[in-house]
Design a protein around this nucleic acid. Structure first.
Lengths: 184, 184
DNA sequence: GTCTATAATTTGATAGAC
DNA sequence: GTCTATCAAATTATAGAC
């Protein structure tokens, strides 16, 4: 990944997390990066291309920061707590929505390839959580139960990040997250 | 509410639930209603006005359809089940996001008065749920506990409607909703 | 890789006739 | 209340020079 492309993706991420897929423009990105919009088109020919790239970029960074569930366990860390913290940071550090949560909310109006990349984010989240629940308690969490808990966890956190952001009240996020810990 | 204004709001609701606040235009609405865009401006002078109106319209219809928690109890209906069904219908009947859930995800990029109306939707949801939990089990659900359960319920359902819509899998919604019933 | 310039379209909004 | 006509601005995207 070249440096200029990364700069473009960083700015685009910020803008998408503020206003969604229709909330960013080549001109505005160009201005903030310090180049011209035609140069942005050179790196990402169409808006759909840039949309796909930013969703992929966000997904990769999310999992890089989080790490593998097994690795967390090896370091005596609770994977579920780490996962919750990853979502919480979007609120406290960036004071912004989860990028793919926002794209997910807009899914019915997105170009095809952006839809697919957003779906991939959600599939990867469910797979990571399912794996984590199985590793945490192999006896209790059968495949079926782990899968169910994964659905519940992802839904709760994506929703909590919205309610908490809308009403500007982090306790809404924490109250919601408690539900996961009492039933873990 | 005049008939033409209602027709405009109905179409606008559909369009917002597809593409968010930036996903509708006066011209497109006008075309679908069968008038000209300047006539839409007559009823709703600015885009912000129309955005506020459609959020209000959606909120009012949501609670009209749902009914009061006390009234549901009087008819031997489970308020929590009724509430879950109200969200589920957005998916099964309309195959669309919750309008205010989408606006909530986009909150950082919305005009001020649309933000306020969206916040009002979430406040009313929390108040309704808190009331319902207290009525359902006054001994167990103190004000504090009812408030917490309300946060959890709203977050879970708003998130579940996203995950389920993104991956086009209603079982994701149902799996998530189970979490509410097992702890009620 | 970046620039200038521009095409083609869409958008929110308004003036004024009827 | 609805229309025609139009404005000013923003948008995605491309051609071609350097």
């Amino acid at each position: 990944m070249e440096k200029k492309e990364q700069a473009i993706l960083k700015i685009t991420e910020e803008m998408v997390r503020r206003g969604g897929y229709n909330g960013f423009s080549f001109r505005e990105i160009a201005k903030q990066v310090g180049i011209k919009s035609s140069s942005v088109h050179y790196h990402f020919p169409t808006k759909e291309d840039l949309g796909v790239a930013v969703a992929k970029y966000y997904t990769e960074r999310f999992f890089e920061t989080l790490g593998q569930a097994q690795a967390l366990l090896d370091n005596n860390k609770d994977p579920l707590q780490s996962y919750i913290s990853a979502f919480r940071q979007a609120l406290t550090k960036d004071k912004r929505m989860c990028l793919c949560g926002l794209l997910g909310a807009e899914i019915d109006g997105l170009p095809e390839r952006v839809v697919e990349q957003t779906q991939e984010f959600f599939r990867l989240q469910l797979a990571w959580l399912e794996d984590a629940y199985r590793l945490m308690d192999p006896d209790k969490n059968t495949n079926t139960i782990a899968r169910k808990k994964a659905s519940q966890t992802l839904a709760l956190l994506e929703g909590a990040i919205i309610t908490s952001n809308v009403l500007d009240d982090i306790t809404l996020f924490d109250s919601a997250a408690e539900l996961l810990l009492t039933q873990a």
